[in-house]
Simulated assay, not measured.
Amino acid sequence: MKFFIKTIKIIFIFQLLTSCVPFKDTLYLEKNKDKVADIEINADAYKPYRLQVDDILSVEIKSNNHKDVEVFSKTGDKNSGVVNQDQLYFDGYQIDGFGNIRIPVIGLVNVQGQTVEEVGKLLEKKLLEEYFTPASNLFVNVKLAGIRYTINGEIGSTGTRTVFQDKLNILEAIANSGDIPITGNKKEVVVMRKIPTGYQSETLDLTDANVINSPYFYLKPNDYIYVKPLKQKSTGLGLNGLQTLTTVISLFGIITTTYLLVKSL
C-alpha cells in the first residue's frame, strides 16, 4: 500500500512539472516589456509595399466628365459605398503571372514590383498622353484591395481573411481570428511570406516585446500564419493546476479501483 501511495505522489508531481502552462507563456509581449520604449519598430514596416503576382488592386479614375471615365471601368461607378471581398475579387484588378493588370481600353499594364503610388502616376501619365487633356482634372487613385492573409493551427477561427486597411500587424490578425487559446504556443508562431523568388518564413515569439522589431511583425498581402500547438495538448494532461488535479483524481480512482479488484481476487 505504501508503494501504491508513493507511486501516486510521483505521478502527481510529474504532471505538475510537465503539464501546466506557465502563466508568463500565456501573455503577449511580456518578456522585455520594460524595454518597450527603447525598441524601435523595424524600418521595413514603413517601406512602401511592392506589388506581386496575385495581388488585387482597386483602381479609381475620375474626371470632369463622368462619361469619359466610364469606359475605363470594369462595371461602371456603382457608388454603393459597400466594399466586400467578393466584390473586389470580381471588380478589382488582379496581377497575373506576368505581373500585369488589364484595364479596359488601356490594355495590359505591368505593375509588378511597383508601389501603388507609382502605379497611380503611371496610369495618370498614360491617360493624359492618350485619352485626356489637363483641363479634364483627371484623378487616378490606386489602392491595394485590402490585406489578405490565411491563418491556421491553434487559433480561435482558422481561414482566409481580408482586412481593409493599409497596415496590419500579427497581433491584430490574431485578434481578428479569435485569439490563440491556451493550447496554442505563443512562442512559436510561423509566418510564411511569398517573395518573387519563392517563399520565406520566420518563427515569432509573441511573448517577447522585441517581436515588434521583426520584419514579419507587420503582415504583407498573402502571408500565411501557423500557430503551433503546445506539447501538453498531445499528451492529454492538464494545461493548468485545476485540470491537472482533475486528471490526477481520475487516475487515482482508476488505479484504486483496479488495486482493490486485484486484491479481492
Rank of each mutant, 00 (worst) to 15 (best):
V119T: 08
G120E: 12
G120A: 13
K121H: 05
L122S: 08
L122G: 01
L123G: 03
E124M: 10
E124F: 07
E124P: 09
K125D: 06
L127Q: 05
L127R: 01
L127T: 03
L128W: 00
E129D: 11
E129T: 02
E129A: 05
Y131F: 14
Y131M: 09
Y131H: 06
F132V: 00
F132E: 00
T133R: 09
P134D: 12
A135Y: 05
S136N: 10
S136V: 06
N137L: 09
L138A: 06
L138P: 04
V140H: 05
V140A: 02
V140C: 07
N141F: 05
N141Y: 01
V142M: 02
V142W: 01
K143L: 14
K143A: 15
L144K: 15
G146M: 10
G146F: 10
R148N: 13
Y149H: 07
Y149P: 02
T150K: 08
I151D: 02
N152A: 07
N152I: 03
E154P: 12
E154I: 00
I155D: 09
I155Y: 06
I155G: 09
G156Y: 10
T158E: 14
G159F: 07
G159D: 10
T160I: 05
T160H: 00
V163L: 08
V163G: 04
V163M: 11
F164D: 04
F164Q: 04
Q165W: 04
D166Y: 09
D166N: 14
K167R: 12
K167C: 07
K167W: 03
K167H: 12
L168Q: 12
N169V: 03
N169M: 06
N169S: 07
N169C: 06
I170Y: 02
I170P: 02
L171F: 14
A173Q: 07
S177M: 03
G178C: 13
G178L: 07
D179G: 04
P181C: 09
T183W: 01
T183P: 02
G184V: 01
G184T: 02
N185C: 10
N185Q: 05
N185H: 03
K186Q: 08
K186H: 00
K187Y: 01
K187R: 11
E188C: 08
E188W: 01
V189W: 00
V189N: 00
V189L: 00
V190E: 15
V190F: 12
V190D: 13
V191E: 08
V191H: 09
M192L: 11
K194N: 12
K194E: 11
K194C: 02
P196D: 03
P196L: 01
P196G: 01
G198S: 06
Y199F: 13
Q200I: 12
Q200L: 11
S201L: 02
S201R: 10
E202A: 13
T203F: 01
L204R: 00
D205S: 08
L206M: 14
T207D: 03
D208G: 12
N210F: 09
V211D: 10
N213F: 03
N213H: 02
N213G: 09
S214W: 03
P215E: 05
P215D: 06
L219F: 14
L219N: 08
K220M: 12
K220Q: 14
Y224I: 15
I225F: 05
Y226C: 11
V227N: 10
V227I: 13
L230Q: 13
K231F: 15
K231M: 14
Q232M: 08
S234Q: 11
